[in-house]
Amino acid sequence: MLQLYKSRDFGLIFKDTFGFLKTHGKHFFKNYITVNGIFILILVTMTYMFYKGYEDIVMGGYVGNNNFNALENYLNENAGSVLLYGSIYIIVGIIVGVLNYAFVPIYFKLYEKHKGANFASKEIVDELIGNISKLTIFILVSILIAIPLFIVVGIIGLLMAITLIGIPFLIFLGALVSFFYHSTLMEYIKSDKKGIFECFGYSLNLCFKKFFPSLGAMGIFMLIVGIAQSVFSIAQLIIMMSAGVMSLENPNSLSEIDQWSTLFVILFILQILSYLFNLLTAAVIQMNQAIVYYSLKEEIENINTQNTIEQIGSAPD
């Protein structure tokens, strides 16, 4: 078991993040896919239906009938169905987003409670259901706080961008904002006594505790993940361009319709793989931030030190 409450410097944050991945990665991702899988599958299915619909309407109309207004005509004729489908798609997307964002705080709460990864997906689902009201309050308050927060962050980011030298450091600004929200949710879900605004205040205090080592570690970790995502995206782009060149040799020919279908299947698969990869890497970023959260919480509250003293005091003579 990884000791959560422990003072960490820059290097130890990285070591414990990768150590957690190595030791509990299989358990983490297995439960991640189990808990979120059904809604991701629904979203993927709906996305596939959208891709196929787009292909049938636009490519079928353009390639088969030279109808450049096929999509516009379809939307005008089926406005009600499109609105209903779009609304369901947005709702499912929001559910997927909330579940993915809440998974890591719930996972670490159970990890702390069981003193290790000795729990199953059912307990994670039960915790998610039990925290629906907290998640709803968190989302609403987060939107409210985001208005002034992003004005301030936007001004700071603009000043950094103007100096040019500050552009590479924008990722650290993003890491700070991301950690502010994530540590708030972790504290809110863990605590039965603190209100949401108290948790935001606590999170703000954490943000400036051991500021440079913690922010540096989170920013560089986000950069590493961002590079991995970029490499995946570049590979995706190369495959898409290669498929596109093969499929567009004669786009006005009716015989090319089957090739267009093949192209869209390839594009769809690549998009889904990219989406899943981004979800999983985003969870890893949250995992890194959770390690920082417990480290900074130990700095403020000395939880591990107090527990050690209590164990010594309760030891039999």
Rank of each mutant, 00 (worst) to 15 (best):
T281C: 06
I285W: 00
M241L: 14
G25P: 05
I266Q: 05
S191W: 04
K209T: 15
V284G: 01
E301M: 07
K122D: 15
Y89C: 07
I88F: 13
I272A: 07
F39T: 14
I285F: 00
T184D: 08
I303A: 06
S121K: 13
M186K: 05
I162N: 04
H27A: 15
L144R: 00
M1K: 02
H182E: 00
K30S: 15
Y107T: 08
Y181N: 09
Y293R: 06
V92F: 07
I189A: 03
G11K: 11
L135R: 11
F264V: 10
I266T: 14
I162W: 06
L164D: 01
S233T: 08
S121L: 03
I312F: 14
F150D: 05
E55P: 00
L237K: 13
I165D: 07
C207F: 09
F108A: 10
I291K: 01
N36Q: 11
K52W: 12
N67H: 08
I167P: 02
L149Y: 12
F221S: 04
I227K: 09
L71I: 12
T47P: 00
A175G: 05
G244V: 09
A70N: 09
F68P: 00
D9E: 12
F169C: 05
S230T: 14
K193Y: 06
L4K: 00
T308E: 13
I167S: 08
Y62D: 01
K297P: 00
E301V: 03
H27R: 11
P168W: 02
F29L: 15
V231W: 05
I132L: 15
F172T: 05
K190D: 14
L164S: 07
G80D: 14
M287N: 09
G166D: 08
Y202K: 14
N288M: 15
Y85N: 12
V284M: 08
T308G: 00
G60R: 02
I269L: 15
S191G: 06
L135A: 09
N118I: 01
N31Y: 06
E310M: 10
G116I: 06
I189V: 15
L280H: 03
F264C: 07
M241H: 02
A228N: 02
S203E: 11
I132H: 08
A120R: 13
F180K: 03
D56C: 00
M1Q: 01
F212P: 02
I234R: 04
F103V: 13
K26Q: 11
P105W: 13
N131L: 11
L144T: 07
D192A: 10
G116N: 04
M241P: 00
F29T: 12
I155M: 09
Y101E: 12
I155E: 02
N100G: 15
G11V: 00
I124G: 05
G25Y: 06
Y89R: 10
F29S: 09
Y294S: 08
V63P: 01
E112K: 14
F169D: 01
T305H: 04
Y294A: 09
I88E: 02
G166T: 10
C199P: 05
E72Y: 11
L144K: 04
L12V: 03
N288G: 09
G61D: 09
H114V: 00
I234Q: 05
I312M: 14
S203C: 12
A217T: 08
G60F: 03
G53A: 05
V58N: 01
M186R: 05
C199V: 07
I94T: 02
Q3R: 08
L135D: 08
Y202W: 12
N205Q: 14
N250V: 04
I196C: 11
Y294T: 06
